[in-house]
């Protein structure tokens, strides 16, 4: 069941210039949260921002009753959120959307930029099932891969950076680990990256789920603003996604934009 709640900020961490994380404590008991689900965050006291902002659930701590968001500062709303301090409160609608299926025995998780956010809770979910995922994280530079070591407790981690400042130089799809044998691929990140990963998976006949980040107004399936042109027609990313099986997205994969 979806809910609206005022969370208390109990932790804040700056992760390089562009990223920060917020740890938020729920007033009561957190419901079960699937990896890949997201929240709609209210940006209050900001003249330029009207709508909530969708942000993935990066991590969940059931014992502490907290969840964590990993946010990249890209505009006015995320900048305002970056100014929040420990002790302040933040209103969220959550948990939203359908998450990853957490299938496969040899999964590969491919993340780029802010897209690595949902992969953390996903890696943890695999690990809890006794499956060790391979995790491949990419970014233009080392500084743009905001979370690194923490992933290592859940799987084998590889990096690709365009300037070679961390791991292999190049794109994630050029990394040797990408060409390994997997039975399931999950990806979240910039659209060109997700399309490249999705096309590769289709070619190789490997199951693949992508998590889309379309612009949203309501986040709960009411406005129909966030649609993706799937093979079954326009589907709301907020409600039927954000995670989709690429086999339903052949039109999207083929489109150049």
């Amino acid at each position: 069941m979806k809910q609206i709640a005022d969370f208390t900020i109990v932790g804040r961490e700056q992760l390089g210039e562009q990223y920060f994380s917020l740890t938020l404590r729920h007033p009561d008991q957190l419901p079960a949260i699937e990896a890949g689900q997201f929240v709609e965050v209210e940006v209050s006291d900001c003249r330029e921002v009207l709508l909530r902002r969708p942000i993935s659930i990066h991590d969940v701590d059931e014992e502490q009753n907290t969840l964590k968001l990993l946010v990249q500062i890209v505009g006015k709303g995320t900048r305002k959120l970056s100014e929040l301090k420990v002790g302040e409160s933040l209103n969220l609608i959550f948990p939203l959307g359908h998450g990853f299926s957490v299938r496969g025995e040899r999964p590969l998780l491919v993340g780029g930029g802010a897209g690595i956010a949902p992969l953390f809770h996903l890696a943890k979910s695999y690990s809890r099932k006794g499956v060790e995922p391979t995790i491949l994280l990419g970014g233009r530079t080392k500084a743009l891969i905001p979370v690194r070591d923490a992933f290592e407790q859940y799987g084998r981690v590889f990096y690709a950076t365009e300037d070679g400042s961390l791991g292999e130089k190049g794109l994630v799809t050029q990394h040797p680990a990408f060409a390994g044998r997997y039975d399931h691929i999950c990806t979240c990140g910039p659209t060109p990256m997700m399309k490249a990963v999705g096309r590769y998976a289709m070619e190789k006949g490997v199951e693949c789920e992508v998590s889309l980040e379309n612009m949203m107004a309501c986040g709960i399936g009411a406005c129909l603003c966030c649609v993706c042109d799937t093979d079954d027609g326009h589907k709301c990313v907020c409600k039927e996604g954000p995670v989709f099986d690429v086999r339903k997205l052949t039109k999207w994969l083929a489109a150049t934009k």
């Binding site: 921002v49 009207l50 709508l51 379309n214 612009m215 949203m216 107004a217 406005c223 129909l224 603003c225 966030c226 649609v227 993706c228 042109d229 027609g233 326009h234």
Partner: peptide, 10 residues
């Protein structure tokens, strides 16, 4: 099906 994405702007 409605119009193509993007169909919302703040």
């Amino acid at each position: 099906q409605g119009n193509p994405y993007p169909r919302m702007a703040e």
